[in-house]
Nucleic acid binder design. Structure first.
Lengths: 203, 203
DNA sequence: GTCTATACATCGATAGAC
DNA sequence: GTCTATCGATGTATAGAC
């Protein structure tokens, strides 16, 4: 575990530096593909120094993942049951798309983890994640049954928002290879997904 | 490279066995995460015996990827410009969804590779893949301009089919964690995606 | 707190007997 | 063709000086 209450400013700053470097390397190489040497170099620290702040490579990875879950779920948490249904869902989609633009490394970190069976996160998926999705799915179902949006399976609606937005971060290389240079995939995606969800949800 | 023309039946069978085992391990662990020991055990062969049939670990991985590309693109290739537009697109989507059910390991093998920048596949993405998508995007654009389907960006329509169908293979753990036991995610997805693409494409 | 040096394990690949 | 044994490289983690 990370020291719970870093005393000095230097400690806080070093831990931040290490986590930033680890995000860079883990997201690009996966857990096994990443090495402490790479992380140390990216952080501008020595390898033993990394292990002064964290007990192991795995501890760095776990710290990254767990620290990220709240950030990752914030857009869904912010969906307001009292708001206008279509606007709320569209806003949620756009917040997720914005995260694919602003936090592609975090998206790939999660994708790597889930793709390999979530060995360090499956507990959180079945508890914290499931509970939040259950709650928001109930909200969407109510909107749907009230006729304020078209009838739609709320769980798969949420999955579709995840899949469609995260795709542009996780498969960035493929998207750019197909579209060719000189385009802004995320910008185009914003317009496309506006259309898609408008047509899907219009009552 | 694999021996181009395996002489004996034993050679062919062993190569098949190795590739099957390698698919199992690479798709679950990624390239760096997989070890020759794991592949050898899964194949029921010794580690040096693997390297009798393939010159290196990387050669096995490359062979898997290149052998798979044709299979992977077949559903898109089969989209018929002379067919009924909406039926063709829906059929393509369902073929892709069927591949997420029947070939989840292949899906994850690709996802692992692309997620990490496609170090062993970027050439193919910019050539073979791009050319096929360009061709089919032109077909969809023509359908759209003729008013036979609703106006839609053809490239992002194809991306959306990839994202939505592959999500159920690549993020299977997450989907099941959220839905809970006793459900058939792929079956539910089939119905949801029918609805989604019907509403998106209806002229 | 941070470094150099190094212990110890794992992994890809090879040598050589059969 | 297939095995056991092993080399050499790499990677995580630790020891100990400063």
């Amino acid at each position: 575990m990370t020291p719970q209450r870093p005393r000095t400013r230097i400690q806080r700053r070093n831990i931040e530096t290490i986590l930033e470097a680890a995000l860079e390397v883990f997201s690009a190489q996966g857990f096994r593909g990443a090495t402490l040497d790479q992380i140390a170099q990216a952080a501008g620290l020595s390898k033993p120094n990394l292990l002064y702040y964290f007990p192991s490579k795995e501890a760095i990875h776990v710290e990254l993942l767990s620290g990220l879950l709240d950030v990752w779920l914030a857009p869904l948490r912010a969906m307001d049951p009292a708001g206008e249904p279509r606007a709320e869902i569209m806003a949620y989609m756009h917040r997720k798309l914005e995260m694919s633009r602003e936090m592609p490394r975090e998206s790939r970190l999660f994708a790597n983890e889930v793709l390999q069976g979530a060995p360090r996160m499956s507990a959180l998926l079945g508890s914290e994640l499931k509970e939040l999705v259950d709650e928001k799915a109930a909200v969407i179902r109510a909107w749907s049954e009230a006729g304020r949006i078209a009838p739609v399976d709320p769980y798969h609606l949420i999955f579709s928002i995840w899949a469609l937005t995260q795709h542009y971060a996780d498969f960035d290389v493929q998207v750019r290879a197909v579209l060719g240079p000189g385009r802004d995939p995320l910008d185009e995606a914003g317009r496309f997904l506006d259309t898609l969800f408008e047509r899907l949800l219009a009552p």
